[in-house]
Design a protein around this nucleic acid. Structure first.
Lengths: 205, 205, 205, 205
DNA sequence: GATGAATGAGTGTTCATTCAT
DNA sequence: GATGAATGAACACTCATTCAT
């Protein structure tokens, strides 16, 4: 029942994360200063330091909080049989995770040079490599390796690039998902014969 | 007959570009200071300002010098009939341009948030959109639009991601090219029936 | 009961203003660097920026704080009948204001070229024009207009030039006031006949 | 026969002075950089150094070239009997000198803080004191000293302030001259009784 | 008579961070 | 749970000046 205008009690940490993520993903990490964040929240810079040890720490917390679904997805996938269906499901779930943490992924996509130097850079890279490992065959040919990588990148880069195009957002999202699925399917031929992308609809069994 | 100790030759501008590009692409634009660049060249910061009006101006000059081949490619493509063969050739040539300006494209790929705020951000975006327009059919379906975008992104992102994997660099490059070609081919079906990605070999005429 | 070594009191802002005004009026605005100001205060440059947004902002604050009496004088004068007595009183009070903000006016007098480009340049000019408007008749002849302007300038320029001459400061001040009063009196003839400067003693009724 | 567009032969020194004076008087000495001057002349900064040893040297040369008439006036005046008529003539001639070197005097008027630190600062001050000495009686009372000073300042400050007012420039100039003459006349009473400013028309002998 | 290339010392400004309160 | 006041290190940039050519 608290009035809307007054600063809410215990949610400052969350509000910092929200504002920080918005600014980081909009202007970039380096170009977003703690002063800006503080001003937008109408607190002092020092207040940020009560909740986070450093600027980098804010990013780490965002990565951990918003990236959790992906980690869970990885854990799940590692318990599954490595069939094509599993892989398609990985794509589908990853696509869903991206949607719910869009700003974070946009930030990581557009600030790669920066992120690389941050502590999470390594963790992010490892995560991507793990996902990649889940998608490709162990003895996959080079072209199929590229297909798997591309499947992942499509979802990252594609989504943001698509945003500026016309069309219903849901439709665009689905198109991206379909191409990613297609790629992963093509990269995982049944036995020795490559699967037909056509047969790789988004439809789940 | 110039002494070896004083390199007061006319190549300073070029040397600045080289070092700057190396540092920009390695540590990012914001994290590379003009002091670093100057120190690595063993000149003063002020010397940089003799050759370039601002830090941003260095990037602009790099973009203009190294990006010229792509602009020429675009001019060429616009004069060609918009057949599948032309599009495949666009991919091939673009792939080749990327190779010769690898550091620049890595920089632009990994510093998107920064580049967006630079003057060249807009120009780069326009260039990508033009290329994209050259690849896709006018009335292409959403999925085919995504395929074309992905073809381009694969070459950008894929190349850098691949670098860290094992295998012969030339082989990897070729695999990337093949997937990109495949995607563009699939996005440009003959008549009304969409082509199967599988049938989209790199096969040249 | 605070220890003598750390002057971390709440007067820093004021101290910055004091030192800045002293240096600005002594060496000029451009030739006074923030480093100098900071050093003289034994704080860092960054501390200045905690209290003032920019270098110019320091000047603005000085102008606003020290110039207030003049603004009040203007408000007062605008409520009075526009008689010769009022005008003489304006001169007297303005003369008094100059005394209490001597350094500021010296700064503005000696850095006109600089001040013109500052935000306060316009405000200062407007203030002078308002004062001028309060002194002169609406349909004053050119010569009388010049007399009013000169009355004001005498107080500005005269006071600083006089400082270097010998004689009791109070006497010099009074002489300046007398000439200014004389000029304004001459510029405001009773009816059609110009008043005799002689009759314009500083003596108030 | 030289075309108007091409840089004329031997007049570069003069052109530098012209441009420099214009910029100095418009933006101030410190805010005018040699780069600006060079750019406006379409030569390099180094070219300026062929003609002038330092930036300050440009000002010195301006002061010497444009201020010569005043020095000549002083020489002339020192040979004259120190009568009121001579003094009035000094005012008249000084007024004329100001007109022909308007930009220089505007510069010196508006950059006093700067000029004070320049070599010419002292020379200018001495010149003013000499003029002042020529105008006032040896045993003049304080008020009369102020009148003489004001006479000089009116011509400096008044002229620039008047410029922004409406009215025929020549008329304004004459009004300034008249007030200055009036002041000097009032400061030089016949016998022991002070003259009335009123009786101090610009009337020439 | 002038340029091309450079320097050294400085400028105002911003930043992430600290800490006593 | 947060602030007020400050710091140290850095930054992009500008300036007057120099000198070999």
């Amino acid at each position: 029942m608290s009035s809307a205008s007054q600063p809410r009690r215990g949610n400052t940490r969350q509000r910092i994360q929200d504002v920080a993520l918005e600014l980081f993903s909009e202007h970039g990490y380096e170009k977003t200063s703690l002063r800006e964040i503080a001003e937008q929240l109408d607190v002092t810079k020092a207040a940020l330091y009560y909740h986070f040890k450093t600027k980098e720490d804010i990013v780490v917390s965002l990565f951990e909080d918003l990236g959790r679904p992906v980690d869970e997805l990885i854990v799940w996938a590692q318990e599954q049989p490595r069939t094509l269906e599993t892989k398609q499901e990985v794509i589908r779930r990853y696509h869903e995770s991206l949607r719910s943490a869009e700003a974070l992924f946009r930030f990581m996509q557009e600030n790669q040079a920066t992120v690389r130097d941050l502590t999470i850079g390594l963790r992010f890279k490892e995560r991507m490599l793990t996902l990649y490992g889940l998608l490709k065959e162990d003895d996959a040919e080079l072209v199929d390796q590229v297909r798997c990588l591309t499947a992942l990148f499509t979802m990252h880069a594609g989504m943001f690039a698509m945003q500026e195009m016309e069309g219903d957002p849901e439709d665009k999202r689905e198109a991206v998902l379909r191409v990613a699925t297609e790629l992963v399917t093509a990269a995982n031929p049944p036995g020795r014969r490559p699967a037909r992308p056509d047969s790789a609809q988004t439809a789940s069994p």
